[in-house]
Design a protein around this nucleic acid. Sequence first.
RNA 1: GCCGAUGUAGCUUAGCCCGGUUGAGCGGCUGAUUUGUAAUCAGCAGGUCGAGGGUUCAACUCCCUCCAUCGGCUCCA
Length: 627
Amino acid sequence: MKLLLIHSDYIEYEVKTKAIKTPEDTTKKHDRFEEALTVFTAVEKIDEKGPSQVVKQAVEEITKTADQLKVRNIMLYPYAHLSSDLASPKKAQEILVEIEYELSQKNYNVKRSPFGWYKAFKISCKGHPLSELSREIIPGKIEEENESLKKERKLSSYWYILTQDGTLQDIDKFNFKDYNNLKKFSFYEKEKSRAVKGEPAHVTLMKKLEIADYEPASDAGNMRFYPKGRFIKKLLEQYVTRRVVDYGGLEVETPIMYDMDHPTLSKYLHRFPARQYQIESDKRNFFLRFAACFGQFLMAHDATISYKDLPLKIYEMTRYSFRREQSGELVGLRRLRAFTMPDVHALVSDMNMAMDEFKVRFDLSLSVLQNIGIDNSDIEMALRTTKDFYKENKNFIVDLVKKLGKPILVEMWDKRIFYFILKFEFNFVDMSDKASALSTDQIDIENGERYDIKFTDKNGTQKYPLILHCSPSGAIERVMYALLEKEAKKMSKGEKPMIPLWLSPTQVRFIPVGDEFVKDCKKYVDELNDVSKYLYVRADIDDREESVSKKIREAEQEWIPIILVMGEKEKEKKKFNPRFRIKELGDENKEYSIKELHNLITEKTKCYPQEPIPMQLYLSKKPKFKG
RNA sequence: GCCGAUGUAGCUUAGCCCGGUUGAGCGGCUGAUUUGUAAUCAGCAGGUCGAGGGUUCAACUCCCUCCAUCGGCUCCA
């Protein structure tokens, strides 16, 4: 709804001719109001979604202004020309009558000029700074509708556990004995003594390891990343992007903000009006994207696509996507208001192609997570679909469960409520028994048409494609959260935590026993990187004037995977007795030459992105970002 | 957003119940030590006690409001 409020000496009108087919009945052809706040109003299309909300917000705005101006007289004046996207006359009139009623209940003297007529009017504006105000009202939460949607979903939603052999069991009947995490995920149940655990494990770790931190100068849920955190995030981004490009994704870049009034977007947008950041720029309003869908769909809308081009895969690593989650929901790297999200859509011709592609992307997601360092035992799968789809495609679905190799949670609806017909998620269950989705893929059967995306089929006819939405890893920050929580679990069992070798900012630390060995360390660091110009071994040197044991202690606390002490012995033999953080890395009782260490490391990291060390070579020149 | 808890130096924290010039460890700086596989020693600097208001002769301490963080709830296309 658009409002134009004018503090007037008087407002006067005269009814002339009909402006619409069935205008409001009126006997009064002429009226005048002295010392009134004249409120020109235009009810818009989107107001129809939440009429009661709009009335409430409009009344608030009007009374606020009236009280400020100390005015008791209010003239409501329908004025269609304030907007180009008007509500139906019937609805508009209802809303205006409702506003009139509410205002009169609050003891204002209210007049309303008749709806649907051309009128001549005269107005005298007082002209002081507050005398002319315009307001835009967008219905807030569409509460009633959300409620009913929720209820409907609850009523028609059924929960099962599906095992590899294809048995579908009611969730209450399933024996969870060997499936503790699935149980936690399925019931999201509370364990006995959870009182006052302090902040989540990964939050403590992300600060301690100088990965990421809260930024008080920004909005909550917008993080700062220190050099080490940025580095880990960069490598994850690169790795996921590489895998999607190998799969055939065409990487694009699209804007982070979009016009709220764009006809296609606004429909989609107003289903979830309370969730975006909004930006006002000149006279236009923009929202920050909450997914990569818009940009890619708008691009696909303008593209010329043949059936031969399908499946067509479009990809973007969104830095960032924005969602204004409720403040209480935000936690560390798990749930943010600004996050980095890989999003690959696939346009397909029909359901058969959709299902084939779904399988491919299922494998891709599983493999991406595994290679990152999150394997099958760390995740629980959920699958959501309708009863009919399940019945018709049972074998297809059971095949997915076989691939995962353990039972999954299934949610089924009587009829389709959302835009997708089939969706899978891989969920991570953390130290506090919270579950969060990582990878996901959906078969969307609505948005091809909604965005008017077309392809030409064999016969030359134009068709709407189905669209798959996939994030093969989930949000990158959330992947970091999962990796940290996974290590926290290890720590609680008394095991040493470690960032996967390919992600460790420092892989090797040299500790010279005295000043005179610093230059030898430098020589070896260079040697480690001279073997190949395409493979990096990230090494640094602790040249500070501290005791050897203190330097080792600190390297251990920094989770450095390989620690090498450099002294007379090593200089002579050209061999090291490394401290390996975990036994999978190497044998502590063996001596290693630089060449052997190089091979050991690159063997484990060569299929991952290669980047040099993101920090100073010498620890004496490294600042502390935290603590 | 709702309910509860917390906020003291860059970090971790003592003091607050019962009002009377904030105390320490780590880190930083300076000096000594030149170190062989998880903390070398000494000195120095560093605090509008989250912000604003109130009560009081006097507030880190008691009261109110706000902000931030944590936990729970709700929520998570």
